[in-house]
């Protein structure tokens, strides 16, 4: 039981996909202009991760080793298509603001990485927990980056104005701000890691 919980926790803390493993950066940067987008992207990616991890851990013994990567891609792409269609039907506005990054979940390295490194070697239950942990870790990282960018860049949080008389720094909504925010955040994470070996909430 404790081991199972460990699988869940590691994705959020030590092996956080964004700050710890530095994977899946393209969507992290591109959709983190507002917190709403970040949450939408996080949920979509978590769903795909969960679905593909479950399926892959079920069929891992049926797939010949040589063609495992193409097979994983097909499974992942199927779930991405589901997400795409659901988003188009029920959340058209969100789908529009995420744009081409919805189909691009297919090539998100986190999902492929977990399929290859975890789901293809473990049973179903640990794979589910691993997917949930990684998904939540990814979503939280997205929300952190998006909060910084939205508050500094447009002076709002979840669309509501926050501070009176605060001149928003437009640069944080644009591309350079995204790169700078993530660079500094990873720097802070590294700094904490160097300072003390215990987990640090960055």
């Amino acid at each position: 039981m404790k081991k199972l919980f460990q699988e869940f926790k590691k994705g959020i803390t030590v092996e956080n996909p964004t700050f710890g493993l530095v994977l899946g950066l393209c969507p992290t940067l591109a959709v983190s202009t507002t917190v709403i987008n970040a949450i939408g992207m996080g949920i979509a990616a978590t769903f795909v991760l969960l679905g593909s991890n479950i399926i892959i851990s079920f069929i891992k013994n049926m797939i010949p080793r040589e063609i495992r990567l193409p097979s994983f891609i097909v499974v992942i792409a199927t779930f991405v298509t589901i997400v795409e269609l659901v988003m188009k039907a029920y959340f058209p506005a969100l789908g529009k603001s995420l744009g081409i990054f919805v189909p691009l979940i297919v090539v998100n390295c986190i999902i492929m990485g977990r399929a290859e490194a975890f789901a293809s070697k473990n049973k179903v239950l640990p794979s589910i927990l691993d997917a949930l942990g990684m998904g939540i870790g990814f979503t939280m990282a997205l929300i952190v980056v998006a909060s910084i960018r939205e508050i500094l860049g447009s002076g709002t949080f979840l669309g509501r104005p926050l501070l009176k008389g605060f001149e928003p720094m437009l640069i944080f909504v644009l591309a350079p701000g995204a790169l700078l925010t993530l660079g500094v955040l990873i720097g802070i994470t590294n700094f904490c890691k160097l300072k003390k070996k215990t987990t640090c909430k960055a």
């Binding site: 530095v22 640069i171 644009l174 591309a175 350079p176 701000g177 995204a178 790169l179 700078l180 993530l182 660079g183 500094v184 990873i186 720097g187 802070i188 590294n190 700094f191 890691k193 160097l194």
Partner: peptide
């Protein structure tokens, strides 16, 4: 450069400056 910025963080910060120039 500072120990904690070595590698990926400094690469991001440089990319940010380059992106500023490309803007």
């Amino acid at each position: 450069i500072p120990e904690s910025l070595k590698g990926i963080p400094i690469a991001f910060i440089i990319a940010s400056l380059m992106s500023l120039a490309f803007m």
